Amino acid sequence: MLTSITANAEGGVLEQQLREAAASGDAARVRSLLDQGANRESRDKSGRTPLLLATHRNQVEAARVLIEAGADVNAKDNIDDSPYLYAGARGFNQILRLTLAAGADLKSTNRYGGTALIPAAERGHVENVRTLIEAGVEVNHLNRLHWTALMEAIVLSDGGPRHVQIVELLIKAGADVNIADKDGVTPLAHARQRGYTAMEKLLLAAGARP
């Protein structure tokens, strides 16, 4: 009866402590609180579970303890981020691999309708792109902007070595180099407009059309 309405909405004292321990990366404390019966799927006001909070700060060991205890790697918060999607988008490869081993939903999408591969490609996270391709994420998935991972690696990049490598990885994985954006502009046309000659060569070698 003494527990506040807010605490009830977010679990209880143990759950609040679990979320704090997860966010701070105190893996031993996380394990202790779970042993005491703290709900591993409790959520804060933003809908974030302890595992998502640990993922936000790339707290690998805390995330590992939670995942080994059965925490849901696909549990989404109020803005459709899950531990799997967030780790994929932010370049947190260790946690990404943990989520994949624990049954991450490769078809799950973020609030933009994109798979984990699309923001990973956009942000130049080479290892995450490689990991997600190897896991089997669909390389030609279109988000709500009608952009693929390949398109984002061109349009939203600086054309530097990391993004060139990502374009190469995507092409080798079967990316369709001729899927245009919603205005009909192709990946090759975008690369040429930006002067990304290395990307242009890769696209042409793969059969890209203007």
Rank of each mutant, 00 (worst) to 15 (best):
K182A: 12
R130G: 11
T115G: 10
E41A: 10
L145Y: 05
I67L: 14
E122A: 02
L18V: 10
K76L: 08
I133S: 05
R29N: 12
M151K: 09
T115L: 12
D81S: 01
L52W: 14
L106C: 14
G184N: 07
I154L: 11
Q94T: 04
A149N: 06
A22L: 13
T148V: 07
Q193P: 05
G160E: 14
I79F: 03
L33T: 07
R90W: 05
T131F: 12
L52F: 06
A21V: 09
L66K: 08
V129K: 02
L33I: 11
E127K: 15
D72M: 12
I171Y: 09
P50R: 02
Q36R: 13
D183V: 01
W147F: 15
A104W: 00
V129Q: 13
D44I: 00
T6E: 14
F92N: 11
A153G: 01
A62D: 10
T109R: 11
N110D: 14
G184D: 14
D26G: 12
R130N: 11
A189H: 03
E10N: 01
R111E: 15
A28H: 10
A22H: 08
G91V: 07
D35Q: 14
L204E: 06
Q165F: 07
A149C: 15
V126R: 10
N93K: 03
E138V: 00
D176Q: 06
V65I: 15
R97M: 01
L52K: 12
N178G: 03
L117W: 06
G174R: 12
G160T: 09
N39S: 07
K182Y: 10
V164Q: 02
K172N: 01
V185S: 04
G37S: 14
L142S: 02
A22C: 15
L66F: 04
M1I: 04
R111S: 13
A89I: 06
R48P: 04
V13I: 10
R194C: 14
S157Q: 03
A120C: 09
E61T: 04
M1P: 06
P187C: 05
E200Y: 01
L33F: 10
G25D: 14
Q165L: 05
G88R: 03
R97E: 09
A69K: 05
R57Y: 14
Y84E: 07
A180D: 15
A89M: 04
A71H: 02
L18S: 11
D176E: 14
M151R: 08
E68A: 08
R209H: 08
A63T: 04
A9V: 00
A101L: 15
D105N: 15
L85G: 10
L204K: 02
I171A: 13
D105G: 15
D183T: 08
L66Q: 05
E138I: 05
I133E: 01
I118N: 08
L52D: 08
N74C: 13
L132V: 02
G11R: 00
V126P: 09
H146Q: 12
L156T: 11
